[in-house]
């Protein structure tokens, strides 16, 4: 299965822990990380995520694998988890 595309998958490998609480926790974590880049993410009805930028643009995302590519598309640049500013902010 592809870590990114999420295509061809019934369920993404990182989302197999199931349950609404786990999904809500994951969405909150994603929102926290994406917030550093000026984006927000909300879970919609436990089935998809809605990703938004500060200009009001939004996109529906199927799973965690597609979140990052869609976020990159909205921002027009890559999102690197090793980014020193991101790591510093998350470490505060």
């Amino acid at each position: 299965m592809c870590a990114l595309c999420g295509v061809i998958l019934n369920q993404h490998w990182a989302e197999q822990d199931g349950g609404r609480r786990a999904r809500a926790f994951r969405a909150a974590l994603l929102d926290r990380v994406l917030g550093h880049f000026g984006l927000s993410l909300h879970d919609w009805a436990g089935s998809v995520y809605v990703l938004r930028d500060r200009k009001g643009a939004s996109v529906v995302v199927q799973d965690i694998g597609a979140v990052w590519s869609e976020a990159e598309r909205l921002l027009g640049r890559p999102l690197d988890p090793l980014d020193a500013a991101l790591v510093a902010e998350l470490s505060r």
């Binding site: 870590a3 990114l4 490998w13 990182a14 989302e15 994951r26 974590l29 994603l30 990380v33 965690i64 694998g65 979140v67 990052w68 590519s69 990159e72 890559p78 999102l79 690197d80 988890p81 090793l82």
Partner: peptide
């Protein structure tokens, strides 16, 4: 899971 998917997107 969140970190690894992000890492592989950025540096896969």
């Amino acid at each position: 899971g969140l970190w690894l998917t992000m890492l592989l997107q950025a540096r896969g």
